[in-house]
Design a protein around this nucleic acid. Structure first.
Lengths: 242, 242
DNA sequence: GCCGGGCCCTGATCTGAATCAAGGCGTCGC
DNA sequence: GCGACGCCTTGATTCAGATCAGGGCCCGGC
């Protein structure tokens, strides 16, 4: 079966100086991983994962090219990434696929049960923490890409404020008051806009009743309505609350 | 010293359903990590890491808020991320910091030697591969954010084509010919533009001599000049080549 | 108290990219 | 071979957001 397949995970190391574009596993590791994989071939144009469906599998591209995308409520589409040989696709949040993935050419994949990560890491705690943290940050960055690519400034600001409100620091759950630690310039440079436009976006959100500026840095707001307005946090939350 | 500090790495799990916003280490793990950490306090407005400097440390935010940013050659600035308590900052590429980080408020950090990752993961191969892969994808996504936030369409296209040319599949090093597996629509949806504008950006790159369209999907191009034009791949490459 | 300098907000103009419209090209099915 | 459709390209118009300009507020220094 898949026994002798040579599995390479495409990755540039972070901390070592050993900068080969592929990280090649030792034969032993390779065999260990291959044992857990199924090999699949897909025609061009096949859908591999669907946004919001249970994420039971991880896919490693062996041959061909695939893409993963996200369709927003307004119908616009953001291609989050292209997957070349050695890339891993099937990123999940809360057990559901973040994006839909499609093949652009005929493709060969290694498919793993998602639990593989948990199993491989089962014994250790700190490593797993670091991996989960990296994956979490990756998800954040991908959401940011979608926001930057397909949302207007006002929605980008709404998404940003909703993110801020997810942090215990600075958001008073009782009063529904968010205290911003950063300037308008910082926000502008984060969401890719000018300070003037950020101010106007604040005004617009206030006009729509989504927030009230108590002071420039103190905002009353409803995170839930903010998320809905941004149109990003849609259906991947398991329950509505936090 | 830092012995009893309670270290939490803020992360949402990917594959498990256990979706607490913080991943809390066991006391043992916590102690193990704390033993390796130094505690630092910084005033508001302190620079913590500098883009392009040797990345000797990782920082975990304990209190306060920080941001990391990237200044482009034209002087514009992209704030890549804000770091709240529980976040890790100090992402590196080729041993150099990707971004500059600054405190927005008075902050308390746990500082780790960067080697901690390699050390913790030393014994195992597959886990480390997955972590490096996740970190690599995170870097890609962050570069994409910078591109989307601060580059015009033509430069975004140049950055994208340079990325494509980094893949063995599809780029013929000898002929300097890139074969694209995706449509103009896919490219447009990736770089956040319309198909028409993508076409115009191709024309502009061709007019500037940065590429030649042999067919719509076959491009002669120079990755190095493409990177320079995009203004992103600047100074973090150890050597010029690949 | 008074002055100066960030920071925030608002209005007017300009511009890069979206949108609308249409034509060429290549390929696949018949 | 011929038609049809998908893909790519180009031109004209429109619009969101950048840029330019100016005013108010707050806070810190003298």
């Amino acid at each position: 079966m898949t026994g002798q397949a040579r599995i390479r995970i495409r990755a540039l190391p972070q901390l070592s100086r050993d900068d080969s574009p592929f990280l090649v596993l030792t034969p032993k590791e390779n065999a260990e991983l291959a044992r857990l994989a199924e090999v699949l071939e897909f025609e061009k144009g096949t859908t591999v994962t669907v946004h919001g469906q249970p994420a039971n599998f991880l896919f490693l591209v062996a041959e061909g090219v695939a893409e993963s995308d996200r369709i927003l409520p307004d119908g616009s589409r953001q291609v989050v990434a292209f997957y070349w040989p050695g890339d891993v696709c099937g990123l999940a949040a809360n057990g559901l696929y973040m994006n839909s993935a499609h093949t652009l050419t005929r493709c060969k994949f290694y498919r793993f049960k998602s639990e593989i990560i948990g199993n491989v890491f089962a014994a250790n705690g700190i490593e797993y923490s670091f991996l989960l943290k990296a994956i979490h940050d990756l998800r954040s960055a991908q959401r940011q890409v979608v926001a930057m690519g397909r949302l207007g400034v006002t929605r980008r600001l709404a998404a940003f404020l909703a993110d801020c409100a997810d942090h215990e620091t600075g958001f008073d759950q009782k009063q529904q008051v968010l205290t911003l630690p950063m300037t308008r310039q910082d926000i502008a440079d984060h969401i890719g806009a000018s300070t003037e436009v950020v101010t106007r976006a604040f005004s617009e959100l206030q006009a729509n009743g989504l927030l009230r500026r108590l002071t420039p840095r103190q905002l009353w707001l409803s995170p839930a309505r903010m998320k809905v307005f941004a149109g990003l946090g849609d259906d991947l939350e398991p329950a509505a609350g936090e």
